[in-house]
Simulated scan of single mutants.
Amino acid sequence: MQLMSREAFAGRANETFDVSLGESSLPMTLVEVQALTPHAFPGMSRAPFSLVFRSGSPVVLPQKTYRLTNATMGPVDLFLVPVGRDVQGILYQAVFN
């Protein structure tokens, strides 16, 4: 299993990720890739970061691990948490620390 990094997602901002929902999928757009303040400790293997995705669907998905597929990156499994709503849709965040 490869450790995910902020750099791997930085070039994917504004790209679509399809969230697998069993027999169907839901497109989400990666709208933010943000570095978080590191709290260094021995053995730390990556700098913390977060990703924010936006879904245009009015349906709020529950927080859980989803398989997202991007045309460039392929499939990735991410734990998504709904964190807000704006005029364009529902926002979901994945945090890596």
Rank of each mutant, 00 (worst) to 15 (best):
A94Y: 14
D77Q: 13
T37Q: 08
G11T: 08
V33Q: 03
Q63G: 14
M28V: 15
I90S: 09
F49V: 02
A71S: 14
P75I: 11
P58A: 07
S45V: 01
T37V: 07
N70P: 07
S25Q: 14
L68Q: 05
Y92Q: 13
E23T: 07
S50Y: 00
E32P: 00
G74M: 12
A10I: 07
M4Y: 10
V33F: 05
M1L: 01
F49M: 06
V33C: 13
M1S: 04
S5F: 02
E7T: 09
R12L: 15
G56H: 05
S45R: 07
K64I: 05
S45K: 07
A94D: 09
S57F: 03
D86T: 15
Q34G: 04
G89T: 15
Y66L: 04
L78W: 12
P62Y: 06
A13W: 01
T69P: 05
A10L: 14
L30S: 10
Y92R: 13
A71P: 07
L36E: 12
V33W: 06
E15L: 05
L68C: 08
F41S: 02
A40W: 08
A71R: 14
R46T: 00
E32Q: 15
L51P: 03
P27S: 12
V83F: 11
P48I: 01
V52Y: 00
T65D: 10
P42D: 02
S45Q: 07
V60T: 13
V31Y: 06
L26K: 08
N97R: 13
F53N: 04
L61D: 06
G56T: 12
L78G: 07
L36T: 05
F49L: 04
A94Q: 09
P38Q: 06
D77H: 10
A35H: 04
D18Y: 12
E32W: 03
L61S: 06
V76D: 09
M4L: 12
S55K: 04
P27Q: 12
T65H: 03
L61C: 07
P82L: 13
S5T: 15
S55E: 07
M1G: 06
L30T: 08
G11N: 07
M4P: 02
Q63K: 12
Q2H: 04
L30R: 10
P48C: 04
A13K: 12
G84P: 13
E32R: 13
V76I: 15
P58M: 02
H39G: 02
V33D: 10
L3D: 04
V76E: 13
Q2L: 06
R46M: 03
V19T: 11
T72C: 03
R67W: 02
A8C: 01
F96E: 12
R6Q: 12
P82E: 14
S50T: 08
P62E: 10
V33T: 13
S5P: 02
M28R: 09
M4G: 00
L91F: 11
T16M: 11
L91P: 10
L78T: 07
G22M: 09
L26Q: 15
V81M: 14
R12G: 01
L30W: 10
T65F: 03
V19N: 06
A40K: 03
I90C: 15
P75F: 11
V95P: 03
S24K: 10
V59F: 03
S50L: 11
V19W: 04
Q34H: 08
L3Q: 06
D77K: 10
A94F: 14
S20H: 11
T69Q: 11
G43C: 02
V87C: 11
A10D: 11
